[in-house]
Design a protein around this nucleic acid. Structure first.
Length: 583
RNA sequence: GGCCCCGUAGCUCAGCUGGACAGAGCAGCAGCCUUCUAAGCUGUUGGUCGCAGGUUCGAAUCCUGCCGGGGUCGCCA
């Protein structure tokens, strides 16, 4: 249950009641009305901007309108005080029962707390990772992978029907390079001396097992054959092996896609690309023409030439985009168009692409393609994920692709663990550069947010364990009958309020496609809990367990349990574990 | 040169899609403390929200133009 949504409806009802009192009809636009927690808690429990936003519609001054709305709200039994402040804010104070009720609701449905119908089962496709199947994943892929996964989980929690998808680039020139590299390893496996891997091929050792497998499967059968004969066989085997490796890398991060979509499956005579382009031609969206040269520095190999173009410019792109290469084969973009058509055909209204920031130039054309193919029905949101800079105790980690000593995703996960990687990747807005320090994320200190949040959860469990020792095995289990009104300390109340905000955070994060908000929320909740805990050091009466007052203790244990449940709930959306103890 | 992203306290970053005096954590300063679970705790200093206009009752947030940083710029994926 989202308390803010509940009171948003009451505010709407109050506004409508004011409208009903008028002698004349007015048209009002409620879309800008919000009910939110005020920044300063002394202003009240909830605040709405309704009077300021609607003052024009009503033809009244904001404070005058606020007074009329306030009058209606004062009749609500759950509202104990309504006042008008500043330019026309309406501040509400709610009865304790409302908050205790919210807490009780949370406790009775912990797993579902924050779950929302916001998405109304609308179909969303989240495409993420989509790394080329030419080698193991490196850290650069890591952030997009975690981000996409957490976003998908979040949207699904918020009521969307989510498909997690990986686009496999198994059709381009680089998978041929992969095949040639694997072929070399195949000959090596047969005992041939291959020397250094030639420039332009993939040098990594990870292709050796592929070569050995090929040797086992084909013996020497592929040796004398022409490339045209062996390449498709070797390529298929190599791609399969690389995908297997990538799946394992992703599994180490607890990431699983629903669909691995093959680019190659779009090609072939009369395949989806052919069909899509024929359709576009029929709609006059494809033409033969020339493109103006790019401004500024011309590429060395620029030649003015007629080519097959998609009128993406008509749909908001900066220029039209080529569909065929000079040798007549399709561009990557052509596959992309067919792929987009396929997704739209599968009924997705929302298409999310998680891409590296270096793909920023791709945003407009993806939006244009979706607009052209769906008639504006499918909405594209490209989430650009900025790069991750690795540090070891403050020192940047040098990586050089040429020497092949790049840090793999697996290296990182094995060194610091899945939880730390996932949390840190999400503890920053996606479009901000992220510094990742190996030393810091293993630290057991406040400076390490992963530890800080997990520790807060472990502490809630610890309190419950201690309580059972002090008060008997049943302590803290019967939260349903706890007398929550015994919670009266300001720190306790603040925690209750914070907990009640959670569903709102989920919805806002889902709407904005920003899972980092959940990471920040759990960090804040952990912080509030820790600081309330610390108050017990100075003032014994604030400690959760009061042996001489079982009723009070039960109420506090219910609160502690609720904090633990929400921490766990939030962490689970991020794919991070909530350990019961951290010894 | 065109387009995209970023610019908020000394540092690292939030800022709830336009709200109330701009927040947090480090660091700094001043005290306290040795623990119901182990990150010590509490208080406090500190900002012309890159600059200049504009829209609005109201702007860090939206628009325009500059400045600075990064990315990207027919046939690579």
């Amino acid at each position: 249950m989202n308390l803010f949504a509940v009171f948003s409806e009451r505010v709407t009802a109050a506004i409508n009641a004011v409208v009903g009192d008028l002698s004349h009809a007015v048209a009002i636009d409620l879309s800008r009305v919000v009910v939110e927690p005020p920044r300063d808690p002394s202003h009240g429990d909830m605040a709405t901007n309704a009077a300021m936003v609607l003052s024009k519609d009503f033809g009244m001054k904001p404070r005058e309108l606020a007074e009329k709305i306030a009058e209606k709200l004062r009749q609500d039994a759950d509202v104990t005080a309504v006042d008008i402040a500043g330019p026309g804010f309406i501040n509400l104070r709610l009865s304790g029962d409302v908050w205790y009720g919210a807490l009780r609701g949370l406790l009775s449905d912990a797993e579902g707390f924050g779950r929302s119908h916001l998405g109304a089962h609308r179909k969303v496709n989240v495409e993420y990772v989509s790394a080329n199947p030419t080698g193991p994943m490196h850290v650069g892929h890591c952030r997009g992978a975690v981000f996409g996964d957490a976003l998908a989980t979040l949207l699904s929690f918020a009521g969307y029907d989510v498909t997690r998808e990986y686009y496999v680039n198994d059709a381009g020139a680089q998978v041929d390079v992969l095949a040639r590299s694997a072929y070399l390893r195949y000959r090596e496996a047969l005992g041939e001396e291959i020397g250094a891997i030639p420039e332009g091929l993939y040098p990594g050792d990870y292709l050796k097992p592929v070569g050995e497998k090929l040797a086992a499967a084909y013996g020497k059968d592929l040796v004398g054959k022409s490339e045209a004969e062996w390449l498709p066989l070797v390529r298929a085997a190599a791609i399969a092996a690389m995908l297997e490796m990538i799946r394992e890398d992703l599994a180490a991060l607890n990431i699983r896609h629903d669909i691995f979509f093959s680019e190659a499956s779009l090609h072939g005579q009369g395949g989806p690309v052919d069909i899509t382009l024929a359709d576009l031609r029929a709609r006059d969206l494809v033409y033969e023409g020339r493109l103006p040269p790019p401004k500024g520095q011309l590429p060395d190999d620029w030649e003015d030439r007629e080519q097959t173009l998609f009128r993406t410019q008509d749909f908001g792109d900066d220029t039209d985009r080529p569909l065929a290469k000079s040798d007549g084969s399709y561009t990557y973009f052509a596959s992309d168009v067919a792929y987009m058509k396929d997704k739209i055909g599968r009924g997705f209204e929302e298409l999310i692409f998680v891409l590296g920031a270096d793909h920023g130039g791709y945003v407009k054309r993806l939006e244009a393609v979706a607009a052209a193919l769906s008639g504006g029905k499918a909405h594209v949101d490209v989430k650009l994920v900025q790069l991750v800079r690795l540090f070891r105790a403050g020192e940047p980690v040098r990586m050089s692709k040429r020497s092949g000593d790049f840090v793999t995703l697996r290296d990182v996960v094995e060194e610091v663990g899945t939880d730390a990687v996932r949390f840190m990747m999400l503890f920053r807005k996606n479009d901000a550069v992220l510094d990742f320090d190996f030393a810091k994320v293993l630290e057991q200190s406040r400076e390490n947010p992963v530890f800080y949040v997990q520790y807060a959860h472990a502490r809630t469990k610890s309190v419950l364990r201690n309580a059972r020792e002090a008060l008997g095995a049943g302590a803290g289990t019967d939260t349903a009958s706890a007398k929550l009104e015994r919670l009266s300390d300001s720190g306790e109340i603040a925690l209750v309020h914070k907990l009640a905000e959670y569903p709102r955070v989920i919805e806002a994060a889902a709407l904005a496609h920003e899972p980092h908000r959940i990471a920040f929320y759990v960090h804040e909740l952990a912080s509030d809990f820790h600081s309330h805990w610390n108050r017990g050091n100075d003032d014994q009466s604030l400690r959760f367990v009061q042996a001489d007052d079982v009723e009070l203790t039960s109420a506090r244990l219910a609160l502690v349990q609720a904090v633990g449940l929400v921490l766990k709930n939030g962490l689970s959306l991020l794919g991070v574990r909530a350990p019961d103890e951290m010894r």
